[in-house]
């Protein structure tokens, strides 16, 4: 069991083997493992970020929904107010129109009445003249008795 030059040969083998193992196996593999580790870490980070984004989006969606609801309520309130206003306006207009028409009708009636009155007055005058003529058996000269006639007509 002597120590021989085998020692040197085995030392060379050992050193070469360390070099080769580092070169062909350890180097590529640890680089690959590091890359994989990085990839996994990136993936996890991306997942985390996605989750965070989702949370944010959910929150924003909720906010948007709330705003939309509030806006809708506001719009509805406005619409109601506007409707009420329109109805009120319509009512006022209708009333005004009604009054106007009523006034017009009343004016018409008055006018008709006056006209009828005038007509009647004229007819009454002529009837009265005719009646008087019959009573007097003679014709009444409208000219000579005009003053009387007018007086009568004014009295009716």
């Amino acid at each position: 069991m002597n120590i021989t030059a085998t020692l040197i040969a085995q030392m060379i083998a050992f050193v070469l083997l360390i070099w080769f193992v580092n070169k062909v196996l350890w180097g590529p593999m640890s680089a690959m493992l590091a890359e994989r580790q990085k990839r996994i870490a990136d993936g996890l980070a991306a997942a985390e970020k996605g989750k965070h984004d989702l949370e944010l989006a959910e929150k924003r969606a909720k906010e948007e929904l709330q705003t939309a609801k509030a806006k809708a309520a506001e719009i509805m309130a406005q619409a109601e107010k506007r409707a009420n206003a329109i109805v009120d306006e319509a009512r006022v207009n209708a009333r005004a129109e009604g009054e106007r028409q009523l006034a017009a009708a009343q004016a018409e009636i008055e006018r008709e009445t006056n006209r009828a009155k005038e007509q009647l007055r004229g007819q009454v005058a002529s009837v009265a003249m005719a009646g008087a003529a019959r009573i007097l058996k003679r014709e009444i000269d409208a000219k000579s008795h005009g003053e009387v006639l007018n007086d009568v007509i004014a009295q009716i």
């Binding site: 120590i3 020692l7 085995q10 030392m11 050992f14």
Partner: peptide, 10 residues
């Protein structure tokens, strides 16, 4: 012993 000593001496 040559092999083991080669490694341990390295």
């Amino acid at each position: 012993l040559n092999t083991t000593l080669a490694m341990s001496l390295t």
